[in-house]
Structures are given as structure tokens and as C-alpha cells.
Simulated assay, not measured.
Amino acid sequence: MRASQITETSIEAMVYGFYDKVRADAALGPVFNRALDGKWEQHLPKMVAFWSGVLLGTGAYLGNPMGAHRALPPFPEALFDRWLSLFADQLAETFELAPSAVIMEKAQRMARAFRLGLYYDPAKVIAARSTVS
């Protein structure tokens, strides 16, 4: 039965189900498994705390997600699209439509912020504009 409300229990189900998908995914699995080798047991509760903070305002997560992602070896920006696709699949399995839509909107905003934080290079934008003129 899918959850009609966002609760700690439904967030935990979402996070654990999502990362099961990620670990098995041909594109995302190698990136995540390499970064989290031997650390999955610590990472998953952090992600539950992160999403609990985002969705319920619990303040349970005290980390620096952008800093953590910047510390990773480079990975293709296109993986964000795959991440969002798997996340949408998990939301459809975990939640009814209304909470799923709320969560997906937040995830899409987060993905945009991470893309900008990790891949945006103003020098490249300026160079591209100067070649168009």
C-alpha cells in the first residue's frame, strides 16, 4: 500500500527502496558503490535524516551535501537525469500521487542546484557567448 502522507516511516521506505535501485543500476551503481564501499550502513540513515529534514523540517541532518558531492571523483552530469528517473520510480512505489509530486519537485530543485554547484563554469559560458557574436 502506498503512503498518502509523508512520515518518517514513508521517508525511510523511500530512501532504502531508492538506494536499492541505485545500487543495482548499471549507470549509477558503479559510481555510488565505489564512493560508498563499506559505508552504506552509515550513509542510508544519513539520507533518511536528510530527507526528513527536507520534507518534514526535522533538522535531523547536519551535513554539507554539496561539499560531500564535490569531494567525490568526477562523474558525468547526465547521471542526474538517471538519478531523477529512479527517484521518480521509487516515489511512485512508495507514495500516492500528491505526496509524490511534492517530493519530486523538491528533488528536481535539488538536482538543479547540484548541477549548478558541480558543473557550472562561468568562464565557459562567457567563452561560448563570445564565439556566438
Rank of each mutant, 00 (worst) to 15 (best):
A111F: 15
G63Q: 12
D25Q: 04
Q90S: 01
V54N: 08
F95L: 01
P76F: 11
E41W: 01
W51G: 10
Y16D: 06
F87S: 06
P76V: 09
Q108A: 14
R23N: 03
R23T: 02
L28Y: 04
A60H: 07
A98K: 15
L55E: 03
L72M: 15
V125N: 13
G17Q: 00
A127D: 13
M104K: 03
V48I: 10
L118M: 12
P76W: 10
A113D: 13
F32T: 07
D81L: 14
L72D: 13
S133E: 11
R2D: 00
I6E: 01
L118F: 09
A98L: 14
G117K: 13
F75C: 09
Q5F: 07
L56G: 05
A60Y: 04
L36V: 04
L44F: 05
A88M: 05
P76N: 09
V102P: 01
L97Y: 11
A78C: 11
A88C: 06
L72P: 13
M110N: 15
E12R: 08
M66S: 10
T9Q: 04
V22A: 01
E41Y: 05
A13F: 00
S130I: 11
M66Y: 12
A128S: 12
F32M: 09
V132C: 07
H69R: 14
A35V: 13
E93S: 03
M14I: 00
A27K: 13
Y119R: 10
F75A: 08
